[in-house]
Lab assay of single mutants.
Amino acid sequence: ITIHVNGVTYHFDNPEEAEKFAQKMAKTYQLKMEIHNGEFHME
């Protein structure tokens, strides 16, 4: 699972971890999250 946050790329093997991380980042930084081709993009 690949997550892009403001141009920084994070890779996770565990989908649950990826989702937790994505939600935490979105909440902490008030980010808008989109999913493209199974990759999370946040800005």
Rank of each mutant, 00 (worst) to 15 (best):
I1A: 04
I1N: 02
I1M: 09
I1C: 14
I1S: 02
T2D: 12
T2M: 06
T2Y: 12
T2V: 09
I3P: 00
I3D: 00
I3L: 04
I3Q: 00
I3K: 01
I3Y: 03
H4C: 14
H4R: 07
H4I: 08
H4V: 05
V5S: 01
V5G: 02
V5H: 02
V5I: 08
V5D: 01
N6K: 12
N6V: 13
N6R: 06
N6W: 14
G7P: 00
G7S: 09
G7V: 15
G7N: 11
G7M: 12
G7Y: 13
V8F: 12
V8G: 05
V8A: 08
V8S: 09
V8K: 10
V8Y: 12
V8N: 10
T9M: 12
T9G: 11
T9P: 13
T9A: 13
T9V: 12
T9W: 05
Y10M: 04
Y10F: 11
Y10H: 08
Y10E: 01
Y10Q: 01
Y10P: 00
H11G: 02
H11F: 10
H11K: 06
H11R: 08
H11E: 07
H11T: 07
H11S: 05
H11Q: 09
F12T: 00
F12S: 00
F12Q: 00
F12V: 00
F12E: 00
F12Y: 03
D13Q: 09
D13G: 09
D13I: 10
D13C: 14
D13K: 05
D13F: 10
D13E: 10
D13V: 09
D13N: 08
D13M: 09
N14E: 06
N14K: 08
N14P: 01
N14W: 09
N14R: 06
P15W: 14
P15Q: 07
P15N: 07
P15S: 07
P15E: 06
P15I: 12
P15V: 10
P15F: 12
E16Y: 08
E16Q: 07
E16H: 09
E17C: 15
E17L: 10
E17A: 09
E17M: 07
E17R: 08
E17H: 07
E17W: 10
E17Y: 06
E17G: 03
E17F: 07
A18N: 00
A18W: 06
A18L: 06
A18I: 02
A18S: 02
E19Q: 10
E19N: 11
E19A: 12
E19L: 13
E19Y: 12
K20G: 05
K20I: 10
K20D: 09
F21N: 00
F21E: 01
F21S: 00
F21I: 01
F21R: 00
F21W: 12
F21C: 13
F21A: 01
F21Y: 02
A22E: 02
A22W: 06
A22S: 04
A22I: 12
A22Q: 04
A22V: 12
A22L: 04
A22C: 14
Q23E: 12
Q23S: 06
Q23P: 00
Q23V: 12
Q23C: 15
K24Y: 15
K24G: 02
K24M: 12
K24F: 15
K24P: 00
K24C: 15
M25A: 02
M25F: 01
M25G: 00
M25K: 00
M25W: 06
M25T: 01
M25I: 09
M25D: 01
A26R: 06
A26W: 14
A26Q: 06
A26D: 12
A26I: 11
A26K: 10
K27L: 11
K27Q: 10
K27I: 12
K27E: 14
K27S: 04
T28M: 14
T28Y: 15
T28Q: 14
T28R: 14
T28G: 03
T28I: 14
Y29D: 15
Y29E: 15
Y29A: 14
Y29V: 14
Y29S: 14
Y29C: 15
Y29T: 14
Y29H: 15
Q30E: 12
Q30W: 11
Q30S: 03
Q30A: 05
Q30D: 12
L31N: 12
L31Y: 07
L31D: 15
L31K: 07
L31G: 12
K32Y: 14
K32D: 14
K32A: 13
K32N: 12
K32G: 11
M33Q: 01
M33E: 04
M33L: 13
M33K: 00
E34H: 13
E34A: 06
E34N: 05
E34D: 03
E34L: 08
E34I: 14
E34R: 06
E34S: 08
I35P: 02
I35W: 05
I35K: 02
I35N: 03
I35L: 08
I35R: 01
I35Q: 03
I35H: 03
I35A: 03
I35S: 03
H36M: 05
H36D: 02
H36E: 07
H36C: 14
H36A: 03
H36I: 14
H36Y: 10
H36R: 12
H36V: 10
H36N: 05
H36P: 02
N37C: 15
N37V: 06
N37A: 04
N37T: 03
N37F: 10
N37S: 04
N37K: 04
N37H: 09
N37Q: 05
G38S: 03
G38I: 05
G38E: 04
G38W: 05
G38F: 06
G38D: 03
G38R: 02
E39G: 03
E39V: 05
E39C: 13
E39M: 05
E39I: 09
E39T: 03
E39H: 11
E39Q: 08
E39A: 07
F40D: 03
F40A: 04
F40P: 05
F40R: 03
F40I: 14
H41K: 03
H41Y: 14
H41M: 05
M42P: 05
M42R: 02
M42K: 04
M42T: 03
M42W: 07
M42S: 04
E43S: 10
E43A: 09
E43V: 15
E43N: 08
E43Q: 09
E43P: 04
